[in-house]
Amino acid sequence: TDSHTCMGGANDALAFGVGATEYAALVKSGFTFLEVPQSIRFELVGRLPRGTTAKDVMLHILAHHARRQETLDRVMEFGGEGLRSLDPDERATLANMATECSAKAGVVEADEEMLRWIAARRPGASVDELRRRVVMPDPGAEYAGGRHTIDLAHIRPMVATPGDAAKGIPSDPTNGALIAELGEVKIDIAYGGSCTAGKEVDLDLYARVMREAMEAGLKVKEGVDFYIQFGSESVEEYARRRGYLDVFQKTGVRVIHPGCGACIGCGPGVSSSTEQVTVSAINRNYQNRSGPGRLYLASPLTVAASAVAGKIVAYREGMFAERGAALAAR
């Protein structure tokens, strides 16, 4: 019944959440009625620039396609050569945020890397067996929502803003804005986690930024609380094996055991006043979803870099070394 059941689409599956009543009927009868939904195709080409992630891709789609309701009640299909350059965990972000696009589901085309990823985590499964179960689009398939090509090389770090209530603009994931055009936004809370951003590759990204900060003699900005919550026990163990917990401890990051957490308004990372500003890697920023404050959605790289800077900034390799050198020269 979870609205982010669609994350299963990363495995080339049609997955979507259902209501409690429908779920009860499924348990009793073993089937449910489903009207075949329309589809919309996103053809990914090129490669993402350093400093951008699949979260930025989804913020782009939310701002330029979902905002125009092109994805409404449709299955979002992701394919193309550009998809092959994304880690399986990053592909999961694409499927996960189909919900924020008001889509029925998100389906990511499978390739050999994804099949190996599944086989490594599913006891008894083999790549050959999984390959026989792969479903691909029919040649000449038509899409009611059209085919849309996204050149990953043109994706830039983005946020979804909390809108402006005074102007009648609600806080919404479709409020996309380039960080380069955002202006200065100081933050009180940075949060990394949830099903969208608590995966292994997300922990790699947080750790990359915080290790660079540590090597430059920097840590989480005074006055900012930075929380990282693991998406599962296996992710927490992964972070421990990789030495990330030590990096986080030394740089002032507070780690939280697995759970939905701040994404559903529970536990650390939730704002407590309307004046607080949060930059978060969760998937939705509806008003009061994660406390009464103003919440900006961003990628794991942006969240971590912003926690160190004390304001919303895009991550750039070497950014902290330059800042550390400037501080040392004073």
Score class of each variant (00 low, 15 high):
residue 183 G to Q: 03
residue 131 R to V: 00
residue 321 A to V: 01
residue 261 G to Q: 06
residue 139 P to S: 05
residue 213 A to Q: 01
residue 218 L to W: 05
residue 251 T to Y: 11
residue 271 S to F: 12
residue 55 K to F: 11
residue 47 R to M: 09
residue 64 H to G: 01
residue 134 V to D: 04
residue 226 F to C: 09
residue 275 E to A: 14
residue 24 A to E: 13
residue 280 S to N: 15
residue 6 C to L: 13
residue 72 L to P: 02
residue 128 D to E: 15
residue 200 E to F: 06
residue 59 L to N: 07
residue 47 R to L: 02
residue 164 D to N: 15
residue 217 G to N: 06
residue 322 E to Y: 09
residue 37 P to R: 03
residue 8 G to N: 12
residue 250 K to C: 03
residue 11 N to W: 15
residue 149 T to E: 15
residue 133 R to T: 00
residue 25 A to M: 04
residue 143 Y to Q: 07
residue 286 Y to N: 11
residue 309 A to E: 08
residue 86 L to I: 06
residue 110 A to S: 15
residue 102 S to E: 12
residue 266 C to R: 13
residue 204 D to A: 00
residue 53 T to K: 02
residue 328 A to F: 09
residue 118 I to H: 13
residue 316 R to Q: 14
residue 105 A to Y: 13
residue 132 R to T: 00
residue 176 G to A: 11
residue 31 F to L: 11
residue 247 V to K: 03
residue 300 P to G: 03
residue 289 R to I: 14
residue 237 E to N: 09
residue 84 R to L: 11
residue 206 Y to T: 04
residue 98 A to C: 11
residue 54 A to H: 03
residue 228 I to P: 00
residue 80 G to I: 03
residue 98 A to H: 02
residue 175 N to D: 10
residue 204 D to R: 09
residue 315 Y to A: 05
residue 241 R to S: 15
residue 92 A to K: 15
residue 228 I to E: 05
residue 97 M to R: 10
residue 131 R to K: 13
residue 234 S to Y: 10
residue 248 F to C: 04
residue 103 A to R: 08
residue 98 A to R: 03
residue 269 G to A: 05
residue 305 A to F: 02
residue 2 D to R: 06
residue 187 I to F: 08
residue 263 C to P: 01
residue 236 E to G: 09
residue 69 Q to C: 13
residue 324 G to I: 08
residue 4 H to E: 08
residue 127 V to S: 12
residue 175 N to T: 15
residue 72 L to F: 14
residue 10 A to P: 03
residue 298 A to Y: 08
residue 18 V to Q: 10
residue 180 A to K: 12
residue 186 K to D: 12
residue 245 L to Q: 02
residue 115 L to G: 00
residue 252 G to D: 04
residue 70 E to R: 14
residue 52 T to E: 00
residue 93 T to R: 09
residue 326 A to E: 15
residue 308 V to Y: 05
residue 27 V to M: 08
residue 33 F to Y: 08
residue 265 G to L: 01
residue 36 V to W: 01
residue 120 A to T: 10
residue 219 K to R: 15
residue 77 E to H: 13
residue 35 E to Q: 15
residue 117 W to V: 01
residue 68 R to A: 15
residue 285 N to L: 04
residue 94 L to P: 01
residue 254 R to K: 14
residue 216 A to W: 01
residue 102 S to M: 12
residue 67 R to L: 12
residue 134 V to L: 03
residue 244 Y to E: 05
residue 10 A to W: 10
residue 282 I to W: 10
residue 275 E to Q: 13
residue 243 G to I: 08
residue 51 G to I: 11
residue 59 L to T: 02
residue 51 G to M: 04
residue 202 D to H: 11
residue 95 A to M: 07
residue 202 D to W: 09
